[in-house]
Amino acid sequence: MDTQKQVLRILDEVLSLDGRSASFTRDTALLGAIPELDSMAVVSLITALEEQLGISVEDDEIEGATFATVGALSDFVQARLP
């Protein structure tokens, strides 16, 4: 499974999007565009990504641009995969 598909699956699960993420593309805006993705959801999302994909994210690596689009988040995750 490719990274973007994994990220979309986890987004759908963590944000309870009920399958809405299936229509998301790399250019789909996330932070500020999806009401479910607030600051608390970002923390839950990072935790889920770490646990399910075996990555580690340091606090100083987290910035708004990472969550700007599906593509930005997927690239961020891809860069941390073993």
Rank of each mutant, 00 (worst) to 15 (best):
E51D: 15
R9M: 06
S74R: 06
R9N: 14
R26C: 03
S44W: 00
Q52H: 08
I62R: 11
L11Y: 08
L53G: 13
R80F: 05
V43F: 03
D38S: 06
S56C: 04
R80S: 11
D2P: 14
L30A: 12
I10K: 06
T47C: 04
V43I: 15
L15Y: 03
K5W: 03
L17C: 04
A33Q: 08
E58R: 14
L45Y: 00
T25A: 12
F24S: 06
L49M: 12
M40F: 12
I62H: 10
L49T: 00
G64V: 12
A68V: 01
G32E: 13
A68W: 03
T3I: 14
L31E: 07
T47P: 00
A68K: 14
L49A: 09
T66I: 15
I62W: 10
L8E: 04
E50V: 04
L15D: 08
I34F: 00
V77T: 08
Q78R: 14
S21F: 02
I55V: 15
A33I: 01
T47N: 04
T47G: 03
G54V: 10
A72W: 01
D75C: 05
I10R: 02
G19C: 07
L8K: 15
E63C: 11
I62S: 10
T69M: 06
E61Q: 15
V70K: 04
E63K: 13
E50L: 05
L45M: 09
A41G: 10
E63F: 11
T25K: 12
S56W: 01
L30R: 06
G71P: 08
E63R: 14
D38Q: 06
S16I: 00
V43C: 00
A41Y: 10
Q78A: 15
L8I: 08
I10S: 05
E58M: 09
L81A: 07
L11A: 10
E61G: 11
S21L: 01
L11Q: 05
G54T: 12
E36F: 05
V57E: 02
S44D: 10
L30I: 07
E51K: 14
Q6N: 10
E50A: 09
M40A: 13
D18K: 11
A48Y: 02
S74C: 06
D75I: 08
E63N: 14
Q78S: 15
F24L: 05
E13D: 15
M40G: 09
S16G: 03
T66M: 10
D59T: 13
R26H: 12
D12A: 00
E61M: 13
G19P: 01
F76M: 09
I62Q: 11
V42W: 03
L30V: 08
A72L: 06
D2M: 05
T28N: 08
S23A: 15
P82T: 11
G54S: 07
T28R: 09
F67V: 06
T66D: 03
S39M: 04
L37W: 05
D12M: 03
S74Y: 04
A72P: 01
D18P: 05
L81Y: 07
D75V: 07
F67T: 04
F67M: 08
D2N: 15
F24H: 07
M1K: 07
T47R: 13
